Amino acid sequence: MTWEALAVSTGVVALAEMGDKTQLLALLLAARFRRPLPIVAGIVAATLLNHALAGAVGAWLAAHLHPTWLRWGLGLSFLGMALWMLVPDKVEEGDVRVAARWGVFSATALAFFLAEMADKTQVATVALTVHYAAPVMVVIGTTLGMLMADVPAVFVGDRLARRVPMRLVHGVAAAVFALLGAATLLGAGASLGF
């Protein structure tokens, strides 16, 4: 189950992140600063912190909610994520300017941390942690998924964004979340207590 948590978390978040505002933010930061290594380090630091917090919330919810409420909340949140995946994201230039005077690493870490608050991937991290009851593996997986989408954006920039069919990627991610939601509502995970 823990390897499944890692694999699903990585794949779902990598798909969800394609065209997401943090991927667009990575493109903007790369264009503005042209220093990929501190940008990638800032993305890693911000993502680990943000997703660790989300994993802690997911673990707390799993420990404190009645299994029936947990199953319904989790199933509906996955279905909500499926719908949310179909809404395109935008990033504002102000997101980059917020911390630009602090250096490339700090600007990236702060901008990414703030951009990820209540974002799709943070919400997905909470839901996946509740579903799999393996917070460490989920956080590692969601962080890897973020990096799979955002690091190439730092290095290849616009060329990547123009060649990847974002509607298709978002559709696949929405389908995966919908399947997770339906399976949860239909009782998948009953052996886990919800």
Score class of each variant (00 low, 15 high):
2 T>E: 15
4 E>H: 13
5 A>Y: 06
9 S>A: 15
9 S>T: 10
9 S>Y: 09
10 T>M: 12
11 G>K: 04
11 G>E: 11
12 V>F: 09
13 V>M: 02
15 L>V: 07
19 G>Q: 08
20 D>Y: 13
20 D>K: 05
23 Q>T: 05
23 Q>N: 05
23 Q>F: 00
26 A>M: 05
27 L>G: 07
27 L>W: 00
27 L>C: 04
28 L>Y: 15
29 L>H: 04
31 A>F: 11
32 R>S: 13
34 R>A: 14
35 R>E: 14
35 R>Q: 14
36 P>K: 02
37 L>A: 12
37 L>F: 08
38 P>E: 11
39 I>Q: 06
42 G>M: 05
44 V>E: 12
44 V>K: 00
44 V>G: 06
45 A>E: 01
49 L>A: 08
50 N>G: 11
52 A>S: 13
53 L>C: 04
55 G>K: 10
57 V>G: 11
58 G>P: 07
59 A>H: 15
59 A>N: 13
59 A>Q: 12
61 L>K: 01
65 L>Y: 15
66 H>F: 11
66 H>V: 12
66 H>E: 12
66 H>I: 13
67 P>K: 15
68 T>M: 10
69 W>E: 11
73 G>S: 05
75 G>F: 14
75 G>P: 02
77 S>I: 13
78 F>R: 06
84 W>N: 15
85 M>P: 02
85 M>G: 07
86 L>G: 02
86 L>H: 11
86 L>F: 13
86 L>R: 12
87 V>I: 13
90 K>N: 05
93 E>I: 08
94 G>R: 11
94 G>Q: 10
95 D>C: 00
100 A>E: 15
100 A>V: 10
101 R>G: 06
103 G>Q: 03
103 G>S: 06
104 V>K: 00
107 A>L: 02
108 T>M: 00
108 T>A: 05
110 L>Y: 14
111 A>I: 01
112 F>I: 08
114 L>M: 13
116 E>V: 07
118 A>S: 07
118 A>E: 04
121 T>E: 00
121 T>L: 01
121 T>P: 00
123 V>K: 10
123 V>Q: 09
124 A>S: 07
125 T>M: 00
125 T>V: 10
126 V>G: 06
128 L>D: 00
130 V>E: 09
131 H>L: 14
132 Y>L: 09
133 A>Q: 14
135 P>K: 02
138 V>S: 07
141 G>E: 11
142 T>P: 11
142 T>S: 14
145 G>F: 14
147 L>N: 13
149 A>N: 04
149 A>I: 04
150 D>N: 15
151 V>N: 07
152 P>D: 15
154 V>C: 03
155 F>S: 04
157 G>E: 12
158 D>E: 10
159 R>W: 15
165 P>M: 03
165 P>D: 09
166 M>G: 07
169 V>H: 00
171 G>W: 09
171 G>S: 02
181 G>P: 01
182 A>F: 08
183 A>E: 07
183 A>D: 05
183 A>W: 14
184 T>Y: 08
184 T>C: 06
185 L>E: 06
189 G>K: 03
192 L>R: 11
193 G>W: 14
